[in-house]
Amino acid sequence: MLLVEDDGDLRFGVAAALRAAGFAVDEVADLPQADEALFVHAYACAVFDRMLPSGDAVGYVARLRRRGDAVPVLFLTARDTVADRVDGFAGGGDDYLVKPFAVPELVARVGSLCRRTAVVRPPVQHVADLEIDFARRQVRRAGLLLGLTAREFAVLEVLATRADQAVSRAELIESCWDEMAEPRSNVLEVLVSQLRRKLGDPVLIRTVRGVGYRLAPPGPE
């Protein structure tokens, strides 16, 4: 997801909370940077501070809509009148949160927006005796609740969405880390190793040589 906020302290705090909840976050401080990021990446959602030094984000989002960009948008703003909210929605916003706001509410709203662009899937998915509850963000194996970190769940979620298909390292990095992550490092390999250990035997996350990983029931390669 993309976070557009010119207040450095607020941007840092919001991004940290979103990452702790398992979101990959790219941060920018103004509309030209946002425009470049949206041109390069396809985001599940974007959060815009409404009043930025480079302009009113409502006008910018309206231009996004006219050029066919449907990324879900949440506006953060201190402008709290009914007319301000109407302007935000009329300009193409999908949600509107007034400052000061509760961070857990922002995280919940971002999750709701991101799910609008997610691949359609059942609320609970089974792979062999592994049960993945996407709504509760819980994982069980043979009925036993497993303690996964937010990042481990994010990787497992991507693999489960493409169950029995190879998912590349690049796709996993892009989906589960922000642009500051270094794809050539072993960050993904370390996390997958930890995830396999927590999931237990028999192994469900297979290495696809030269590609990445796939989640599949036990059996021949």
Rank of each mutant, 00 (worst) to 15 (best):
D9E: 07
S193M: 05
L97V: 15
P220Q: 00
L10Q: 14
V211W: 00
R109G: 08
A78P: 07
G55K: 09
D9S: 07
V120T: 07
G111Q: 03
S168W: 08
L74A: 11
S168I: 09
P72Q: 14
G88T: 08
D26Q: 11
R121I: 01
G55M: 08
R11S: 14
L156F: 03
E157P: 13
D35P: 06
E105S: 00
P218D: 04
A118Y: 01
V14I: 15
Q125L: 01
K198Y: 05
A37F: 02
N186R: 13
G8C: 05
L10Y: 09
P183S: 05
E179L: 10
G88W: 08
D129R: 13
R63K: 10
R67L: 10
D7W: 04
F153L: 00
L31W: 00
H126D: 12
M1E: 11
A216N: 00
F75A: 14
R50D: 03
L159T: 01
V158F: 05
G93N: 02
C114Y: 01
V110W: 03
S112L: 15
V192C: 03
R151K: 08
K198C: 05
K198F: 04
F101S: 10
D201P: 04
G200L: 07
D95F: 05
A62V: 04
F12K: 11
V82L: 14
G210Y: 00
L74I: 12
A62L: 06
D178T: 03
